Amino acid sequence: MPRFRRCRQARCHAMVEFPNHYCDEHFEHEAEYQEQRQRWARSHSKTYTHKYNVVTRNRDDAKADQAKFYRTRQWSALRKSVLLRDQYLCQYCKAVGKVTPGKTVDHIVPIEFDARLKAYANNLAVICPACHRLKTDWEQRYYGTGQGNQLRPVGELHTINDIVVAMIARK
């Protein structure tokens, strides 16, 4: 018995027999759609993932150790305790008087800059996605963290208020 699905064209309700994705009226889009699917499959293959993990994420022993740390029970328990402590609220938004939910636990002083602080709860805070992007950009400029950057000999900022002031001053 043949299988059917709806045409992928927006607002077209025609039924199409498998393996096609478009009806006879919109069939000119089929080749383009197949090519797009193949591009996606190539970029999400195991070799692509392996290259990303080996070349980009785990580019040296320090980065590989960082990645391993985030898969430990210690990190899971620490993350959970910080989320409960901060009540799932972004501490950076809270410093400027806003209330924003957050699910990410971020290191106040980046691990890349000072690896000794990676497991201290006092060096962790909940952060929302918008603040996380801003803070990551700021860390790259201030500390010199990130791929291709050189760490700078600067003083560590240990409080969220100091970081927020520094981030605002750099805008």
Rank of each mutant, 00 (worst) to 15 (best):
F4D: 00
R5E: 12
R8C: 12
R8Y: 12
Q9P: 03
R11N: 13
V16P: 02
E17V: 04
P19T: 00
E25F: 10
F27H: 11
F27K: 14
E28P: 02
Y33Q: 04
Q34W: 05
Q36S: 05
W40T: 03
H44P: 09
K46C: 08
T47Y: 15
Y48R: 10
Y52T: 13
V54D: 14
V55T: 06
V55W: 07
T56V: 14
R57G: 02
R57V: 05
D60I: 01
K63M: 11
A67R: 05
Y70C: 08
T72V: 06
Q74A: 03
W75N: 09
L78D: 00
L78C: 02
L78P: 01
K80D: 15
L84Y: 08
L89F: 04
K94T: 11
G97P: 02
K103A: 12
T104G: 02
H107E: 08
I108L: 00
V109D: 02
P110H: 07
I111R: 10
R116F: 09
K118N: 06
A121G: 01
L124F: 10
A125K: 01
I127A: 09
P129G: 02
H132V: 04
T136V: 02
Q140I: 03
Y143C: 04
Q147P: 01
R152E: 13
P153K: 08
E156Q: 11
N161I: 15
D162A: 15
I163F: 12
I168K: 15
R170Q: 14
